[in-house]
Design a protein around this nucleic acid. Structure first.
Lengths: 202, 202
DNA sequence: TCATCATTGTAGTCAACGACAACATTGGCA
DNA sequence: TGCCAATGTTGTCGTTGACTACAATGATGA
């Protein structure tokens, strides 16, 4: 490990690890394969052995991001408690992830991906929404959520949270503390998802 | 105009115009000052007379986008009719703009801007939300919108639409037609904004 | 009328980058 | 043990953004 006379040993992982640091610090624009190679003490062409081009590295980062996000969302969805509370937990978890890893999230959802990995990324994105859809379907069973295709309702719910994250990261939320904006969004969203003629919960 | 022996005449406008075409076709990543100069038949350094650097050009594009968007939103807000209908109109107009000018919208809302113009852009973004806030305040007067700071409710409404646009552009909406997703989002959103114990309108 | 000079465009250069090709080293496997 | 695929290196090319020095233009004012 510490030797690495010629072969690095696990350059791919090291590249991803360092890339994530740079991504968080400087955004995707600031990510350079050559700078990464320098940081890791390898030649400027070494990264090409593990990532066909810069885009492939970005795609890999996005995949890693989705994997972590989905695990976290799944955990929230599987938590005990009433559906409404779990939905709120899901939303808070998403917002937390989004603002903590803003450039990564941008990479994950912006459609600038190669043909090949676009498929995998789309699938991972769908999984995120599927988690929400499952929860909404459970809510419908309980009578806590309005009727309708859970997948489409999940798109709506996801939109609200994703948009709030985008606004927060973009600095458009002004002096409104994100937690407050989050709670209000969840409140409005859950009220909107409640079946007609059932009171909106606080 | 057709002569332009040495001075182009209106290179700045021409740059912006061409840049917008390239932006729409290839995204911000595909925008190169040198390519722009080539397209316009000027030297590679000519653009620097009008835009200090690449970022300045991107910022100018974002400003132009906000100006057009805000004009359109304002028109929708000023239209006759009940508040709910105008809010829906606002939402549809925003979604239409967003998907029609996806790379431009990304430029407008993503926080990758220079210090100086960041101020102007933030202000323009606030104006967009202020339009919605004004409409929501009017809705509160009519009793059609729940109580609360209209500015914060506008953040919520904006989030929902902005997020939906992001999902649509990112291809996460699958086979759901955007108009349907839009209507469902507006439906849920307006229901969520309706005062408690008042029926949700269709 | 003509000199002046700020504006606007040009030519040249530099460092950094992504991509590619040719070559070197390594370690595992037959 | 020798071969070979995987992995890393060196060298190079074309493109880009940024910078500097220089040139043309046209408006201003004496």
């Amino acid at each position: 490990m510490t030797d690495r006379s010629y072969h690095h040993g696990n350059l791919r992982s090291a590249l991803l690890e360092r890339a994530e640091e740079v991504l968080a610090a400087a955004g995707a624009e600031g990510l350079s394969l050559r700078a990464l190679a320098r940081d890791l003490g390898v030649s400027h062409a070494a990264p090409s052995r593990h990532f066909r081009d810069r885009q492939a590295l970005l795609d890999a980062l996005a995949v890693g991001g989705f994997t972590r996000l989905n695990a976290r969302l799944q955990a929230e969805a599987d938590a005990p408690g009433p559906v409404a509370a779990r939905l709120a937990g899901l939303g808070r978890a998403y917002l937390d992830f989004a603002v903590t890893h803003a450039p990564l999230l941008d990479l994950m959802f912006t459609a600038k991906h190669a043909e090949g990995s676009s498929e995998e990324l789309r699938e991972l994105g769908h999984h995120s929404m599927a988690v929400a859809a499952g929860l909404l379907a459970a809510g419908q069973q309980e009578g806590a959520v309005r009727a309708g295709d859970p997948a489409r309702l999940a798109q709506v719910a996801f939109s609200a949270l994703h948009g709030l994250a985008a606004l927060a990261v973009g600095g458009l939320l002004d002096d409104t503390p994100l937690p407050e904006a989050t709670e209000l969004t969840l409140d409005v969203l859950l009220a909107g998802l409640t079946p007609v003629a059932a009171g909106a919960g606080g």
